[in-house]
Every structure is written in structure tokens, then in C-alpha cells.
Nucleic acid binder design. Structure first.
Lengths: 212, 212
DNA sequence: CGCAATATTGATTTAGCTCAACAAAGGTGG
DNA sequence: CCACCTTTGTTGAGCTAAATCAATATTGCG
């Protein structure tokens, strides 16, 4: 959907834990993730961590760099990542096509962040996990990476904890509850959702809440 | 800073609890808040509420409507609000000046939302309140509405609770702790911050975190 | 003055956290 | 292919920050 390799693209890849960007770095380009997962996060003085955004294949990383902002948070690969470096002219501008993709992506980011404010502010552990797994599945499906009712899910429980504002231990226990209730099947980095409707229910979505 | 009344502006005002926008409405224009406070929020099926954004004087409401999105959340006045209706041409486009303001605002919104993800995901009640009061003060100061170390603070404890993901009762108790520690003075809708540095400390901000 | 909204206080409960083992998986080098 | 070691996942026991429930003050306003 985002087109093949355009004129000024170059490819690069990253291993897990490698940085795509560091704080306050000058971003001379933005990426389109072609394969693998990455995230941005913030670390509190005492070590607490919150992941504030997830980049899946097809995502632009970071759209708002195109608005002239510089990274305020590190971005790190969670798996092996293959990405296209969308190059800019010397003046820091991008192709019209790229700008288009950025804005679309930007609007999605705001929408998703808003959804997560609600989840982190008001939802229980089970609702949070349901929201997360649902969102992952829907996003993977939207980019053609879901197969039937399943998709890859490479996150560790620790990473899930840092996304949902829970502890790893509690993530573990809550996932077990969800498995016991037949809400999800989750094993060896693979997610299956037997019944989308009941998972949606469990996520306490607002009527209006579209996840992608 | 955002200029005086431009050619195609018209003014309007709202009373507390009046809607500036409802869900799924077609927004034929966007607003610049000139006076008063408003917020957008989301309601869960069982009545839990999370406020997902606050509009203070000078803010654009909503910048991303200009990106062609329609409201996915209601926006409601918290106080008396005076606003300028920034009109668009029949084609839905805005003046260059307005677009400029939108993008600046948009970048700020993303930055602030990200900060709040961290706070809602990982911070204690006292840290949340410190973050909120600090942000309010800094934003008010940035638009020239702070007087020395104080500014207006019209929110009720219930509204503060819906912003910080806490219960009103716990907000009350935590504010008392903060007052006792000399972190804030807060009475009759007026906020005073005796020592910005210690409140900043109490908010557990990341080194990088600029609030406005 | 009287009513409704807001703020405060106390007593109790609970969802989720902490601490501490231990078990499985997975990758690496021999 | 196996032995080792690190990372990830699982389980148990106890603790605590914040929620809940229930009054009672206080404030502001018509």
C-alpha cells in the first residue's frame, strides 16, 4: 500500500535492543518499518519504564519528526527489524507521497494514544491486556500479517507489562486467567483469538473506539 | 500571539457542561479558546470516565480536525468559555496562518499525550497530581495567565480525578498531603506553587520532559 | 434561606505489587 | 548433539496504595 522502493530510499536493519533513534538526536531521516517490531519508551529517574508507542510493519517512525520535532524518546528494536530510510532533501522536506503517509499515520497515532490514555487511566489489568492483544491483532491484520484468527506476537511478558503499566508477574497471572476463559491462545510468540467479539467485550472498549 | 480577530472569525461562548462538539459530529470549523477551560473525554460502558485532553486559553480545539478527522470524543466546557470559530473555506481548508498554528499545536498535543501515558501507566497518585498541577501552571504561564507563582485552577476534585485516573476521594487525600508538605497551595479555584523545583521533583519527570 | 454541588473524614476491602524461588526455553560454543 | 547459561515464564506468600462505601461538612448560588 505504501508503494515499493522509491527513488531516495535505502534499507537498513536492526537487531533486538538496537536503537533506531536516541533521545535528542537530530533525525536526518524517518523510517518505514518493513519487518519486525520496535517501540519508543520513557524511563523514570528510578527505573520505571513505560512504552509509549509500538511500531509494526508499515508504520512510520516517527511521523512527527517530519513536523520538525526531534526525538524526545529513544526508539528501540524489539525483534529483528528491516526498515526503509525515507530520505529527505537537504532542506529537510520529504516527497509529497511520504508527507501524505506521515499525516495519515500521525492522525492514527493520536487516536491510538488517546485510546491508551483511557486504558491506562481507567481499566483493569484484564481489560488492558485485552485492549493490547486486540490492537496488535487488528494492526497486524490491517497490514496483511494476520492469518485467519492468529498473528505473530513477539513481545515478552516484561514488554507487555511496560506497555500496559502492570508488573510482569501480574501480566503473567492475568494472561493465565484469559487463557482459562478462552479469550486468547498465546504461546511461543504466537497469538490466536478464538472469538473476537468476546475479547472486544473484555477490553471494555467504548462504542466509538476503533483500534486501528 | 495568535493574532487578533482575522477576517473569517466569529466568536461564541459556552456555559459549563455545554458541548463544543459531540461524538461523530461533522466539524465544520475548529475553535481557538480565548477564555476558559474545556476538555475532551471518553466514557466507558459502565460509566468510568477518563479526560483525555484539556483545552486552555490559546489552544486549538481540535487541531487534528484540520487533518480531516471527525471528533471521536465529546468536548465540553468546564468553565465559561469564549472561543473564536476559525472558519474554513467551503472546501474545508484553512488559512495558512491557521494551519501553521494547527501543526504547532498538534505536535504539542502528541508530546503531552505521551507524557500522560507515562504518568497514567507508571506514576503514583502524588506524582500524578504534581504532574497535572505543574502542567497547568506552565501552560497558563506560557499564555501569560500566571501571576508570579500562581494561576487560576477551576477544576473540581472530581475532574482532577478523571484527568489523573484516580478517585475523587483519593485526590482529596493526596492533595492534603501535598499541601501539608508545602508542595502546593490550592484553594478557592486558585493555585500557588511555592517552589517549582520541589514540585517538579515530586512529579518524577524524566530529565527530558518539558511540560508545555 | 435552602438546595445542589463539592469537599472532607473514617472504616474497610481489594487489585495489583513486591519479594523470592524455581522451571522452561532458547541460544552458544565445544 | 549436548552442556551450559541467560532470558523468560510460572508459582506462592504477604503487603500496600488506592478503591469503595458511607457519612458529614462546606461552599456557592438562585
Amino acid at each position: 500500500m505504501l508503494g515499493q522502493v522509491a527513488v531516495n530510499e535505502s534499507h537498513c536493519h536492526f537487531r533486538p535492543h538496537q536503537f533506531l533513534a536516541r533521545e535528542d538526536e537530530q533525525p536526518e531521516s524517518i523510517f518505514r518499518i518493513d519487518e519486525g517490531w520496535a517501540c519508543r519508551y520513557r524511563l523514570l529517574p528510578d527505573g520505571r519504564r513505560q512504552i509509549t508507542g509500538l511500531y509494526l510493519p508499515g508504520d512510520i517512525c516517527e511521523p512527527h519528526w517530519a513536523l520538525g520535532k526531534r526525538p524526545s524518546q529513544p526508539i528501540v528494536a524489539l525483534t529483528n527489524v528491516r526498515a526503509a530510510r525515507l530520505s529527505s532533501t537537504p532542506h529537510g522536506s520529504f516527497s509529497a507521497e511520504t508527507q501524505q503517509a506521515c499525516w495519515k499515520n500521525l492522525a492514527e497515532v493520536i487516536e491510538r494514544q488517546t485510546n491508551w490514555l483511557v486504558t491506562l487511566g481507567r481499566k483493569t489489568a484484564l481489560e488492558r491486556l485485552a485492549h493490547l492483544l486486540l490492537e496488535l491483532f487488528e494492526r497486524m491484520r490491517a497490514s496483511g500479517l494476520a492469518y485467519g484468527q492468529q498473528c505473530a506476537m513477539p513481545l515478552t511478558q516484561m514488554e507487555i507489562a511496560d506497555l500496559t503499566g502492570l508488573t510482569p508477574v501480574h501480566v503473567n497471572r492475568t494472561l493465565q486467567t484469559m487463557r482459562a476463559r478462552g479469550l486468547v491462545e498465546l504461546q511461543s510468540k504466537w497469538l490466536r483469538i478464538p472469538d473476537l467479539a468476546s475479547l472486544r467485550d473484555a477490553a471494555a472498549l467504548t462504542p466509538n473506539e476503533m483500534l486501528v
